[in-house]
Amino acid sequence: MSVFRAYGWELRKLARQKRTFAGLAAAALYALAFVITLSVKKHAGIPPDIPLAKQVTKSGVVLPLALLSFATFFGAPVISSLVAGDIVAAEDTNNTLKTILTRSTGRGAIYAAKALAAATYGIALMLTMFVVSAVGSVISWGLRGVVLLDGQHVTGLHGLGLAALAYTTYLLPLAVLVAVAFLLSTATRSSAGAIVGTVIFALALQGIAALPGLSGTKPYLLPKQFDAWQSLYGAHGESILRASWVCAIYVAVALTAGWTIFRRRDVAGA
């Protein structure tokens, strides 16, 4: 019970901070920018290596997927770490850790509540991006049918459902970034350090995945898990099941490391 009570207050705290809404606004603006640019510049298009790129202005259910592909490189690490990277570090900034750790809720419950709140914010970000991009693109290009990567034709409504599932799948690797930002927030006690660290972590893994001779390990590296949603569209070599357990391992390692630090940390002066 104490975890959920603390979790409820973590959410209320988030709801009272400008940073929270700045992140959500950034996610919404990111989606809107794509919708508006592609609506105004009819021949702009998006890079052909993005899945379903050719259909992006033909059906309103494709653009949300293109956003996922773009977000992987930079947007996801930044927006996911905006809150997750701050949620423990802010207690150091405000010097409030000593205030909450001398009440009747243990460190474990407080840590869990903060992790849950950071995860909830990750979900809220994805929901915002999906709703804004889906509504915007459906208004612009209609709820038309779409041809999947395996050649199968589905209706617009079916395509919208698949896009929603794709966003849900994308939450798996996003959870890894949230967990890493959360770990860095705990370890560095600095929001900026956690955000920059998460971006560097994501970029470093992209770099490692691009190294030659690592083809055997690639399916287990984080960047590959960002593409797991493509299996819903018939792409070969992608697996939601594999993404589930690979991401679960990353999350478990990051959260355990964070907990080890948080459990033993001395709460000294500001």
Partner: peptide, 19 residues
């Protein structure tokens, strides 16, 4: 925290969430 059941107080200046 069980050991702090009957204890309350603050060290240095009390700190709260400013928002």
């Amino acid at each position: 925290v069980g050991a702090l059941e009957d204890v309350a107080g603050f060290v240095e200046s009390p700190a709260f969430y400013p928002y």
